[in-house]
């Protein structure tokens, strides 16, 4: 029986970029795997939900805006309740090229780790994002090493694969705001194995990053605190 894979796409106002992402995803055929696409519409103000339904995907419409973490967790809950073997988080803005998905699944197959992160920094290829943002990512690399002892270069990457154990944990405990770096602390404390694999990312096709201007300072402080407390908290 083929392994069931759920591709979770958390979306907030992504009607512009979603069609091409979904179209590309639907072209992918991986032998031995059965792919299903789930769009989690985080109470978008545009037609994200309608666009997603047109493409024949599973659509979950959240009744209130939960933020990216809450949306991803909803997808993870769906994966748990419907007995999926793997869940892959992929952004709806086109930054994560769907064809890189195969790389992550293959990497998981070879190494058997619980979480695979698609990283844009392992090989300096493709979209590398701005200087300030790279500086921030460097900082989180250091912070992550401090709290988890892991070398994760792209800890803010939202391109991730979860296996059954990881799904089980993320379904119960997943931060809602800016969840990526913090969740790594949660996962490593739970004893999950985390590895990165190099992927090539593109600049976003549409929409705007949720982290801009003063927001980035808030982001740094909030995430640092959250990581510290996740580290201290008994799991």
């Amino acid at each position: 029986m083929p392994a069931k894979v759920l591709i979770v796409i958390p979306c907030y106002n992504e009607e512009a970029s979603l069609p091409s992402v979904l179209h590309e995803l639907q072209q992918i055929i991986l032998p031995g795997y059965q792919l299903k696409i789930l769009v989690v519409n985080d109470c978008s103000k545009d037609n994200t939900s309608v666009v997603a339904k047109k493409h024949n995907t599973i659509v979950i419409d959240l009744p209130v805006n939960l933020g990216i973490g809450g949306a991803v967790q909803t997808g993870i809950l769906y994966a748990r309740d419907n007995d999926f073997d793997l869940a892959i988080q992929l952004d709806g803005d086109g930054q994560h090229p769907p064809k890189e998905l195969a790389k992550m699944i293959r990497f998981h197959e070879e190494t058997g780790v619980n979480i695979v992160i698609g990283s844009r920094f392992l090989e300096k290829e493709g979209f590398q994002s701005s200087f300030a943002r790279r500086l921030g990512i460097q900082y989180f690399h250091w912070l992550n090493r401090l709290f988890t002892g892991l070398h994760v270069y792209d800890s803010t990457s939202g391109f991730r694969l979860f296996d059954r154990d990881a799904i089980e944990i993320a379904a119960i405990n997943y931060p809602d705001e800016y969840p990526e770096p913090e969740s790594l602390v949660v996962f490593s404390k739970a004893g999950l194995k985390i590895r990165e694999v190099a992927v090539i990312m593109s600049p976003r096709l549409g929409g705007k990053s949720s982290i801009r201007h003063f927001g980035s300072l808030y982001y740094c402080i909030k995430v640092s605190l959250a990581m510290l407390f996740s580290f201290i908290r008994k799991s």
């Binding site: 959240l62 209130v64 809450g70 909803t74 809950l77 769906y78 809602d176």
Partner: peptide, 14 residues
Amino acid sequence: DNKKLAQEISLLKE
């Protein structure tokens, strides 16, 4: 609590 409720509702609706 709100987050949990919203998630449950959306999953049930689906």
